[in-house]
Design a protein around this nucleic acid. Structure first.
Lengths: 206, 206
DNA sequence: CTCAAAAAATGAACACGTTCAATATTTTTT
DNA sequence: AAAAAATATTGAACGTGTTCATTTTTTGAG
């Protein structure tokens, strides 16, 4: 008879997560009340809080899944045999942006970003920040890979350049999720415009 | 006897603003309750909402003052006769950072940023975003000014570079306000490390 | 001066995220 | 299998930002 408790627990966990993500996407994060999520999951409000620290924590599961997938895809892009900086860079950035709305709506992204800034000491914020840093590191890795291949000039500081580029990518993404009118292609165009000059500057003359 | 109403109104407006900024700095934004602000200002809670749309709106007056001042200081820096890109750029960025905690605490900045991301359709967010864009434009202006002076290479896209640099400056500032341990000098060091290589790349060989 | 209309002030009521003391269920001990 | 201990569930109550019907104050026309 042992394990009954563990089984119920796993089941409820799944039901709550499912209810929350469904409601977040359907009516938006703000309009999805804990009471509604709990009801849809067939538990009480109190039980919701036994499983998740707070409403914001529910988002992190989704954000995390999203970023993990895009990081994996990014590794594949870095491994490719690129022959020019701009092309490689825009492919990586494009992948980030293309993937970004797979699991999360713009509103969910805004909420996640907003929470991570407003309450930096929470586990939520720390996890969000850690994911950001891994993305930043991946852009640096791309530059290093291109440098090893002789595509990027030997005297370029790959960490400095990578951080600069990623921070711009990130800031532009913030503008993107703030503007419901803006689409991914418009975002990619703007970022291409900003980065192509830099890509040219760091390129090894052939 | 006319104007009594207008006079009272102006007086209350001032008292509420004063009470709010005092409390925000003293006990923090979150802990400063509307009830406390209203009491300190000698009005009722309802009256507070007659004067300000919501709590977040109270921050914008301060943010606005802060950014306006730094923009004015920035103009002075651009007007100087710089002889190298890195020096000019770091002076402008340094001024931004040095000034940033004059009126606002890190917590107030976090709240302002958080609000502007979470609710992009509010007047608050629109005003915040507009200030950001003016700062971004100012960095572009610096590059253009240096280019006219022959310090920056003729073939550099000043808008692209300026936006790239400013977005990095902004993102690093977000990291700064998220980390209570980090001081302004540490921030400036990191940003210098990121930007000096770029400054070198765009510099006109003399 | 009077008084009706306009403007402003008020605070009780509301909404919703969160907490917690009481209750119920499951597991372990004897 | 009964009792005790451990764990989980519950929903009413709380805190705080915000709203709104009611009351108070101010204004200006007659």
């Amino acid at each position: 008879m042992s394990g009954l408790r563990a089984q119920k627990k796993a089941d409820k966990n799944r039901r709550i997560l499912e209810a929350a993500t469904t409601l977040f996407r359907k009516v938006g994060y703000d309009s999805a009340r804990i009471e509604d999520i709990a009801e849809m999951a067939g538990v009480s409000v109190g039980t919701f809080y036994n499983y998740y620290k707070n409403k914001g924590d529910m988002l992190m599961a989704t954000v995390s899944m999203e970023v993990e997938e895009v990081l994996a895809a990014g590794e594949g892009i870095i491994a490719k045999k690129h022959d020019q900086v701009a092309g490689a860079l825009l492919e990586l950035i494009g992948k980030y942006y293309d993937h970004s709305l797979t699991y999360l709506s713009k509103e969910m992204w805004r909420t996640a970003m907003s929470l991570s800034i407003a309450q930096p000491e929470t586990p939520f914020s720390k996890r969000y920040t850690a994911l950001d840093h891994r993305l930043s590191k991946q852009v640096c890795d791309l530059f290093r890979s291109l440098q090893d291949r002789g595509i990027v000039r030997k005297d370029v500081d790959c960490t400095a350049t990578g951080e600069l580029v990623f921070n711009n990518v990130n800031m532009m993404f913030i503008e993107f999720v703030k503007d419901e009118e803006m689409n991914v292609d418009g975002l990619k165009d703007q970022v291409a415009r900003q980065n192509i000059p830099l890509a040219d500057l760091v390129s090894q003359a052939s």
